[in-house]
Amino acid sequence: TTQFTVHSPEQAEQWKEYAKQKGLEVHVQKKNGTWHVTIH
């Protein structure tokens, strides 16, 4: 599991796309103005 924080919805979307291409599961949670992205 990879977990990191991004600071814009655009970055979060890019990671979603990346994960989809790799066939991975991605979870994005918005918290205090940042987005926590978890890739399984």
Rank of each mutant, 00 (worst) to 15 (best):
T1H: 10
T1W: 14
T1I: 13
T1C: 15
T1K: 11
T1Y: 14
T1A: 09
T2F: 15
T2K: 13
T2V: 15
T2P: 05
T2Q: 13
T2A: 10
Q3F: 11
Q3T: 13
Q3H: 15
F4Y: 06
F4H: 06
F4K: 04
F4M: 07
F4T: 05
T5E: 13
T5N: 07
T5D: 11
T5G: 04
T5H: 12
T5A: 08
V6E: 03
V6T: 06
V6G: 02
V6C: 08
V6Q: 02
V6D: 02
V6H: 01
V6W: 02
H7V: 08
H7T: 13
H7D: 15
H7N: 14
H7K: 09
H7P: 09
S8G: 07
S8T: 14
S8R: 03
S8N: 06
S8M: 04
S8K: 03
P9R: 15
P9D: 12
P9W: 15
P9S: 14
P9N: 11
P9F: 15
P9T: 09
P9L: 15
P9V: 14
E10H: 07
E10K: 06
E10T: 06
E10D: 08
E10P: 02
E10F: 07
E10I: 06
E10V: 07
Q11D: 11
Q11W: 04
Q11P: 02
Q11E: 15
Q11Y: 05
Q11A: 14
A12T: 03
A12L: 13
A12C: 06
A12Y: 05
A12K: 02
A12F: 05
A12P: 01
E13H: 07
E13V: 05
E13Y: 07
E13G: 04
Q14D: 06
Q14W: 15
Q14F: 15
Q14H: 12
Q14S: 10
W15T: 01
W15M: 05
W15N: 01
K16M: 12
K16W: 09
K16A: 10
K16C: 13
E17Y: 06
E17L: 09
E17R: 07
E17F: 05
E17M: 08
E17A: 08
E17G: 03
E17N: 07
Y18I: 06
Y18Q: 03
Y18H: 04
Y18S: 03
Y18W: 15
Y18M: 05
A19N: 01
A19I: 03
A19D: 01
A19E: 02
A19P: 01
K20H: 09
K20R: 12
K20T: 08
K20I: 10
K20D: 05
K20P: 02
Q21R: 11
Q21S: 13
Q21E: 11
Q21Y: 08
Q21N: 11
Q21I: 12
Q21L: 13
Q21D: 09
K22N: 13
K22V: 10
K22M: 14
K22H: 14
K22A: 12
K22I: 08
K22D: 03
G23R: 04
G23L: 03
G23P: 04
G23H: 05
G23K: 05
G23Y: 03
G23F: 03
L24S: 02
L24A: 04
L24T: 02
L24E: 02
E25S: 11
E25C: 13
E25R: 10
E25I: 14
E25N: 10
E25L: 12
E25K: 10
E25G: 08
E25Y: 13
V26H: 03
V26A: 07
V26I: 15
V26P: 01
H27K: 07
H27M: 08
H27S: 10
H27W: 07
H27P: 00
H27L: 08
V28L: 06
V28T: 03
V28E: 00
V28D: 00
V28A: 02
Q29A: 10
Q29D: 09
Q29M: 10
Q29F: 09
Q29G: 05
K30T: 07
K30W: 12
K30V: 13
K30P: 06
K30I: 12
K30L: 14
K31F: 11
K31M: 13
K31H: 11
K31S: 11
K31G: 10
N32R: 05
N32T: 02
N32W: 03
N32V: 02
N32D: 12
N32F: 05
G33N: 08
G33S: 04
G33V: 02
G33I: 02
G33Y: 04
T34P: 01
T34W: 12
T34G: 12
T34A: 15
T34Q: 13
T34V: 15
T34E: 14
T34S: 14
W35S: 01
W35M: 03
W35R: 01
W35H: 02
W35I: 06
W35T: 02
W35L: 05
W35P: 01
H36M: 12
H36C: 14
H36N: 06
H36F: 14
V37R: 00
V37E: 01
V37G: 01
V37T: 00
V37Y: 01
T38I: 13
T38S: 06
T38P: 00
T38R: 04
T38Y: 07
T38H: 04
T38C: 12
T38D: 03
T38V: 10
T38Q: 05
I39R: 00
I39A: 00
I39M: 06
I39S: 00
I39L: 10
I39P: 00
I39G: 00
I39E: 01
I39T: 01
I39K: 00
H40K: 11
H40I: 14
H40E: 09
H40N: 08
H40L: 12
H40G: 10
H40W: 14
H40Y: 13
H40F: 14
